[in-house]
């Protein structure tokens, strides 16, 4: 996960302590990927171990949000800065697609006799559509609708990412539905000895 680099990149802007860092992250991502504070400090500790950040006794803390309890501020080192540059310069790899529960579920469902795949698709599409409506509502109201600060713009772009993802999922579900219908229409009379689901591509051609 890129949390480590994201934190490092934010620290490049100036020294911060953990709570500030988390607030800055969530300002930009709208709490879409909430960070727990333990995770923030664990990451900071590792970054320090790796020489990418260093402790500065008491910098950048002009509000007293965390009651002085853990008032240790961190800043990016030279090595940390070059790691950030490297991160920005390198495309995010797609070679390992993130695990997609829905794709796995459908892939299994189409091979198991008696599973009503059409209903799975329909329910999923309604659910995804409802999420898409929620994201769109967030987009047209609140701070994403009229971004004034860079962080607001960042948040509205994150919302766009969620919107495009959900849209792609709906399109893919439409596509699966159409393919399955076509496969069912083209399927020759059932042969008991045939495998449960023949590859539909061959049937279509």
């Amino acid at each position: 996960m890129s949390i480590r680099q994201a934190m490092l990149a934010i620290l490049e802007q100036g020294p911060m302590y953990g709570y500030q860092l988390r607030a800055e992250f969530e300002q930009r991502t709208g709490e879409t990927w909430p960070l727990n504070i333990g995770q923030v400090y664990t990451t900071l500790t590792r970054l320090e171990r790796d020489g990418l950040v260093e402790v500065v006794g008491h910098g950048g803390a002009d509000d007293q949000a965390d009651q002085g309890e853990r008032h240790v501020s961190y800043r990016a080192t030279e090595a940390g800065r070059s790691e950030v540059s490297e991160w920005f310069a390198t495309p995010v790899p797609r070679s390992q697609p993130p695990r997609d529960e829905l794709a796995i579920k459908l892939a299994i469902a189409v091979t198991i006799p008696g599973v009503d795949v059409a209903t799975i698709i329909q329910r999923q599409r309604s659910a995804t559509m409802a999420s898409l409506q929620d994201y769109t509502r967030l987009k047209r109201t609140g701070r994403a609708a009229t971004p004034e600060e860079p962080a607001d713009l960042a948040w509205s772009l994150v919302l766009d990412a969620l919107v495009f993802d959900a849209e792609a999922e709906v399109r893919w579900l439409d596509h699966c539905e159409a393919r399955l219908r076509r496969a069912a229409l083209d399927r020759p009379p059932v042969r008991r000895d045939a495998p449960a689901a023949a590859p539909s591509e061959e049937i279509v051609r």
Partner: peptide, 25 residues
């Protein structure tokens, strides 16, 4: 036919073969 645009609506109605098959919102 674009989900992204339909998402601006309060309610989304899905039609298949002349029948309402589902509805959100």
């Amino acid at each position: 036919h674009e989900a992204r645009h339909a998402a601006w609506a309060d309610r989304v109605v899905f039609l298949r073969d002349g029948v309402v098959v589902d509805e959100t919102g």
